[in-house]
Design a protein around this nucleic acid. Structure first.
Lengths: 339, 339
DNA sequence: ATTGGCACTCCCGCCGCCTGAGTGCCAGGG
DNA sequence: CCCTGGCACTCAGGCGGCGGGAGTGCCAAT
């Protein structure tokens, strides 16, 4: 009874089931995969695998189906990453290269990944928290409103309007703008509060309230903006012809609309040595995603990952291909952002 | 044989079918709606209505179901708009009031509408085309890149980076910024090209190429940005327990992901006298939406509508309620944006 | 340890039956 | 002329029984 072969059997079961979507029996298994043993032998191995919890039968006298635990073992030990075909590589590169701005890059990425994996794709916007400020702009609007625009080094832009009780002194704005920029430029968000506070001393007493309000708005905005954004595509793939989900896809769609939950999930996921994180079935504590698996990885302009990208589908998914696709898109995405 | 009563029968059929989701027969009809006539009489009317194409039977010896044409007549002539309950009104107002910026307003609106109608909600971002420019900002980044930020009077912000062959002359940027703003401020997009062109003459020959490139980027950006954005929520409602859609919801989800198509559809829809547009079933030429209906209306800060908001669901929807909800959200949304 | 044989299980598709809701039509009555 | 009760007809869908076939577990033999 070789452990070696048992794992081989598990791999065969997973691959077959992923392809056919039907419980796989011992006979068909030996036919399709050159295992070199008889169905009876496979049956023994199957019994052992079932005992160990890697596979299960939907009902007596049916073939076996991998359990979450089975997929887990498969992913950890058994699956090779499929290399992409070179047409695929070229398509990815071209598709992403044409993007005109950050929104466009993210949008194209998510659609591309959905297309490649034939599953739901999610892309998190580059995080503000880890990025540095490039520029702050103050724009007077009328005489009692001030528009504050915040631009980060990865191209994100946030803005807020500020309503004032008293008219804005014309002279103060340019100076405030200049000082603010001198203070914030190139600094990371987390390093901002203290320098900003110190900066206020440079202003005459009378202007302090205004200065404080502006600083307050900037800080609030950045605090809020770290509630990251996320975009999604390919929801339609959830409803593919083959009935992937037992009941309905409703809970899945509901979970996907809760961006906050999705974000937490993405950021929680720990990456393995290869830099890819996989959550399988019930490993997702999120209600409604217990029958889905998620493959995610980080991407970022400069080595360090600033955000994440992922693909979500039924637990019965082609993990090898999905992992390859996610990694590929993340790599190209990083390259584009760095360039 | 009164035409009056026939319409009453149609109304009863629609209301019943919308509620029960099952073909409605003559007997149950007279029981549930005090029509004051016998089932046999109703049957005669039904035969006439069927002849005229307003209702149909899924199969012989089944009850009747409204056709698209039947819904159309119902919407045009028969349905009263349900007034909202005052708790509903208050909920809407409070929910929208807390929004911090344009993104937040739009996001909250779409979620709110999805929640109210229990259907898919779509909200188009305020159009750039019809809005005026508030401010243009140029930010040098490094010495060969220029970040162009465009801010409109309804709070939208677009940005592009511009790569230059030669370093940016420090002195030119402030002047260009000042002149650009003097030129564009308060103008509507459509009125921009000529003034911008004339402005270039004010610059010395040597700076012209840079000036032209900046202008070019501004114009391109605005042209692209008029490809409007749209946000969606409530997709999960498509998969509600009752089997609303015969086959699968896949084609619907696919259509919804094609923002371009969705936008065209929204803008095409002609509003009736009450300011609400309704497209029913096959009236939507979009493949995949032939079994859905869409209720839409415009909203905008100042009287004139700048964008649209809508709700999409199965043709068998509660039109009266949906229309009321869409109108209400649009009204509050307009108010917020104007304020 | 592997294998062929064998008895057993049970899902699933098929068929036919029947019921009940609903219809169309007709003949009689206000 | 319109409404109404009566009646025969239709047909979708639920129920039950049947059989095939895929698959299993176990055992004895190699």
């Amino acid at each position: 009874m070789s452990d070696e072969r048992r794992l081989e059997v598990l791999r065969a079961i997973v691959e077959d089931y992923v392809q056919t979507r039907e419980p796989v029996g011992s006979r068909t298994l030996v036919e399709r995969h050159r295992l070199g043993v008889s169905p009876a032998t496979v049956r023994n191995d199957m019994a052992a695998l079932e005992e160990a919890g890697f596979i299960a039968q939907p009902h007596t006298s049916a073939g076996r189906v991998p359990t979450d635990k089975g997929y887990r073992l498969f992913v950890d030990r058994l699956s090779d990453i499929k290399p992409l075909s070179s047409p695929e590589r070229r398509a990815i590169q071209h598709f992403l290269e044409d993007a005109v701005d950050l929104d466009d890059v993210v949008d194209r990425s998510v659609r591309l990944l959905a297309q490649l994996t034939q599953q739901v794709a999610v892309v998190q916007y580059p995080s503000l928290r880890r990025s540095a400020l490039r520029h702050l702009e103050l724009v007077p609007v009328g005489d009692r409103r001030l528009l504050v625009v915040i631009i980060t080094d990865n191209g994100r832009v946030e803005q807020r309007t500020l309503d004032l009780e008293t008219p804005v002194p014309d002279l103060v704005v340019p100076e405030l703008r200049a000082r603010l920029n001198a203070t914030v430029a190139g600094r990371r968000l987390v390093d901002l509060p203290q320098p900003l506070e110190e900066m206020t001393h440079a202003f005459p007493e009378g202007d302090r309230p205004l200065v404080h309000r502006v600083i307050r708005v900037v800080e609030d905005t950045l605090a809020e903006a770290t509630e990251e954004r996320i975009v999604m595509a390919g929801a339609a793939h959830l409803a593919r012809s083959g009935t992937d989900f037992p009941g309905t896809i409703r809970p899945v769609l509901e979970a996907l609309e809760e961006q906050v939950v999705l974000l937490r999930l993405l950021t929680e996921m720990a990456e393995d040595s290869a830099g890819v994180a996989v959550r399988i079935g019930h490993e997702n504590t999120v209600e409604g995603l217990v029958e889905t698996s998620i493959v995610a990885t980080g991407y970022g302009g400069d080595g360090e990952a600033v955000a994440r990208i992922g693909s979500l589908g039924p637990t019965r998914m082609d993990y090898a291909a999905t992992i390859a696709h996610v990694r590929a898109v993340a790599r190209y995405l990083s390259r584009i952002l760095a360039g």
